[in-house]
Simulated scan of single mutants.
Amino acid sequence: MPSQDRAPVALALGGLFSLAAAMGIGRFVYTPILPFMADGLNLPAEDAGLIASANFLGYLAGALAGTSKSLPGRPRVWFLGGLLVSALTSAAMALTVSLWAFLFIRFVSGVASAFVLVFSTTLILDRLNVAGRGGLSALYFAGVGCGIAFSALLVAGLDQMAADWRQLWLASGGATLVFLLIAAGLVPDEPPAAKAPADGSTRLPADASYINASLLRLILAYGLFGFGYVITATFVSTIARSTPELQSTEQLVWLAVGLCAAPSIYVWNRIALRTGARRAFALACMLEATGVALTVAGTGPALFLLGAALLGATFMGITALGLMETRRQASAGGLAAIRQMLAVLTASFGLGQVLGPWFAGRLYEMTGSFQLPSLAAAAALVIAAALVGRQG
């Protein structure tokens, strides 16, 4: 069967493996490896936060660059190149102990993961929609949660074999390379691009009348969401290891996040069909705020794991719902307006992600606890829910 005629299910599976590699592993494996790095390198929380922020800054830069029409070459080249760089940068983390080198490597890794996400949209999601199989996007987005769960199992298994932090990074790079080979076999090149419509419908209207208070509140809320989820998503394994009564959960907590994230896009899409994307967004933010607060509530392993599960069950859903609602509100301005607003939304989200780990690391150095930064993150999520849930 010619590559262009491959079944949509295979295409969605290719997307699952690509997001598992670039996002679940390349972007988020730092979380379960961080406690090992902290022990092996005496890495201060402030430096750990900077390393995470560098990755998210790279993601922001990559997401904005990836949407540029001036990039040469075909999307599949950038897609596979991003996966390869993601594998190489994970392995490269094992080759240095320099903070500046860590910052550079994780920045490049963030750029690579963003490129994979941006170009897989063209290679996978667009073609699934054209084929009338848009529902398979839930399988595609499940890759993030599957990758997180896989990375949790990988780190836990290697920990049982007394692996150190260097070996964990090397194994993560190797796993990413395997997933790259699978994705390359399942995701064919895109068909020739169709010509842009000649009716001028992609042009941004001069008055930009589609921009209103509701859309601006959504953009602000998306930035608060980026800040609110990322502190727990970065430090939850470290919290487990550093809190005596929670140490039994260290190998389970990141697995709980991944397993709950995998089906979350499907679940939140169903909720949004009933309530609308804005109400679903607000509900998910409130549930996530509860989960973030529970991870520092000091009430034992069960509620700590519940908090992690709520984080996993919501963060991908909120991500998708924000994109969905922005597309809807900006659609009156045409395709150019949609691209512009998605870029602004990405910038807002990226800024929140960059500030979150740095803020948490600084506050930890001042207070000796992740409780205050986590409660600040929960408050940011509550504000995000109020901004989006407000009518008009």
Rank of each mutant, 00 (worst) to 15 (best):
L381N: 05
A360R: 10
T234R: 14
R339I: 04
R339G: 05
L363N: 02
T326D: 00
S264A: 12
L43M: 11
V230K: 11
A343F: 04
L80D: 01
F28R: 06
L99S: 03
A112L: 08
L95H: 06
L306R: 07
F370V: 05
A380W: 10
A221M: 12
D126N: 15
F225D: 11
M1W: 06
S137P: 08
I338R: 03
R106P: 09
G258W: 02
Q160P: 00
A38V: 13
S3D: 09
L220K: 07
L294R: 01
G392Y: 10
E245S: 10
G157E: 11
A87Y: 00
P301M: 05
M23W: 06
A206R: 14
V230R: 11
G134N: 08
I318C: 05
F115C: 14
A378C: 09
I239Y: 02
G145C: 10
L321C: 03
V257M: 04
E325Y: 06
F36H: 14
I239G: 03
S237C: 12
A38I: 14
F28S: 06
L342T: 11
F370M: 10
Y210V: 09
G62P: 10
L13I: 12
P8K: 04
L310M: 09
A65L: 15
R327T: 01
V257A: 02
P191D: 08
P205E: 07
L80G: 01
A330M: 00
L273I: 06
P192S: 13
F304S: 00
L181S: 07
L372P: 00
G66V: 11
A272V: 04
T31G: 08
R166S: 10
S172M: 10
T238L: 14
L154Y: 01
L103V: 09
S374K: 06
L186T: 05
A61E: 07
V292K: 04
G312F: 02
G14F: 07
G81K: 04
L303A: 03
S242V: 08
V236L: 15
A261W: 01
L283C: 03
A198E: 15
Q167F: 08
L372G: 01
M93L: 11
F107D: 08
S137Q: 12
E325K: 12
A379I: 15
F36Y: 13
F56L: 15
A293N: 01
L372A: 12
L13D: 06
G132P: 10
D159R: 11
P205G: 10
G134C: 07
